[in-house]
Design a protein around this nucleic acid. Sequence first.
DNA 1: TTAGGGTTAG
Length: 723
Amino acid sequence: MEVFVVGGSSLSHPTTPISVHNYSSSSTPPLSPSLFPNKNNNNNNRRRRLPSAWTKTKSPKLASKGGAFLSPSRRAAIIELQEASDLASSLSRLEGTIQAQGLNIVLRHFGELRRWKDVIQLFDWMQKHGKVNVASYSSFIKYMGKSLNPMKALEVYNGIQDDSIRRNVSVCNSILGCMIKNGKFESSIKLFDQMKKDGLTPDVVTYSTLLSGCIKVKDGFSKATRLIRELESNGLEMDSVIYGTVLAICASHKLCEEAEMYFQKMKDRGCSPNLFHYSSLLNAYSVDGNQMKADELIEDMKSAGLLPNKVILTTLLKVYVRGGLFEKSRKLLAELQALGHAEDEMPYCLLMDGLAKEGHISEAKAIFDEMKAKGVKSDGYSYSIMISAYCRSELLEEAKQLAKDYEDNYDKYDLVMLNTLLRAYCNTGEMENVMEMLKKMDKLAISPDWNTFHILVKYFCKEKYYQLAYRTVEDMHNKGHPLDEELCSSLILQLAHVGESLKAFSVYNMLRYSKRNLSNSLHERMLKILVSAKHLKEAYVVMKDNAELISGSSLAKFMMSFMKLGNINMINDVVKAFHSSGHRVGAKWVYLPRIGRIRDDGFSVTKQFKVTLMDMGDGHSEKPESRFKPKAGPHNSLTFSPPLSFWKEVFCLAVTRYVSLPEKKELLLHLLQWMSGQGYILDSTSRNLLLKNSRMFGQHLIAEAISKQFAASKNLRIQGTKR
DNA sequence: TTAGGGTTAG
């Protein structure tokens, strides 16, 4: 199919190297510059006491700053390097003039200007010429973290030979921060443990760095608690920065009470909260839309002399929206507009999303239109919210129209936007547009994520492109995304329905691999599919691993089919596996026995009584199936093995197969021997069949095997009656 | 003399 080529190539786009790109690709569009430009107004204990000249200018021309302590020739060298059009030749010309200290100034200059190539080139040169010190390492590693190049940072860190540099606290903090910025929290914790073993003495900055990684990780709060405990046991104290981070951790993990607790603790310790601390706590209140507490907090903030700024008011809007207070929200939005704080789409997005999620979709659209009419520029968020809202409400045409509108007017795509558009086009069955989105993803080197795959598989299933759906699931699995059970179960059924049972089995296996707790019924469904498609070898695998989760009747059908049609070389294995699975679990073989009927059985039944030999005597009046009963519930404790008549039939079929293939004599004798060992004996029909054909197998051997069976059964019977 | 932070949207 034509489609396949495009979709296939798109999705099998080579994965980008570990971690580095994966994080960058999921990043949101660039945000507006800091809303708190005058950071130094925070009266909290700033770590660095920089000369006032350093803090005033944020000019990249650092030569003027560090240059105060440098000789004129070195100052000139720094300026020349900063402005060099050919860095390499300037470096070789100035080699004798400039040392590590001056070069570090140039390195930081390039770093602040995000001239990553120059940073790397300069640092390489510095290393080659032995002009590096601790400061060079920590700055360089920091910038590699900022440029999303943690691999380079690690390469340099691992290459440090001098132990005193390797365990220098700045260098360590730098590499830990670099890894955390790039989403490698777990690895950074491991590295931190190793560093401590190697002699690092962590300081407040180390803990603050590690704590910042807890904001976005699962279970971040308990990880943070551990770090704080360690910090305190090392005699260190939490500072304003650390409180800010911890409050953000509480908010991102929806832990409102914990946030309040830390906020109070901070005040009690004489540390006055700044706007960041207030906004984190406010954000925690937005979790359950606690408007009362939010309003109180704003008052508290005002009386502490802090004016609510744009972010605080926007966060307050979030509290109102989450609390379902839409009228109050509208008023606050008007206030934001009046203050000039509604020039980007964020407050509109908050309100729209809240309205849409409460089902007020046309009111959400009205906000969207108002925003557009006001000429507020969009980074795609508002479109994404509206398109998703339409999709959720099954207003598919509207979703598609808005998607097209976005595409016609914007040329900005990230993964979320692409997924949103993809979903809109998939829902309306716009194949051309779907393919267009996939091409775009390819072109922009944006790797598909779980959502992308999920949208596509669902779409392909709906359109009955089962092969494509299958290939996409395979791709998804190979890229390490967990599979969705519901979607895969339906694909399994559909594949089976179009005669692709082996592909269905493959999906089943991928699903089993990626998901621990599958619903019990899936195994049975898979077994049924494979049995009816006569893929008995595969069915055997399903049976062997999941016998306890499959109903007796399905197992029985499988066994009968295998005995009749399965690979003759595997018959004994299947019988044994079935026997031992009954032994092992038997949980689904619920049988309400009439004890008088059953004498000995070979399986453990309950703790109260145990029977040891089954009587294969003829004359069972019940049909095999009638004695398989579904599990009645946890209190119906008589879990049981298959009834005797079932085994009778199994052995009869097995013997019939062997009789038809005398060259499998060894296997037949092996089965008979095994049966004796387990206390199973043949019924009269099978016995007669065997005796009739015993010539082919060697009369002597058959007679011997049958008499052994009798002997075994007698012994066991005697034991049974003694008990 | 180099290392840390926290607030709002899909």
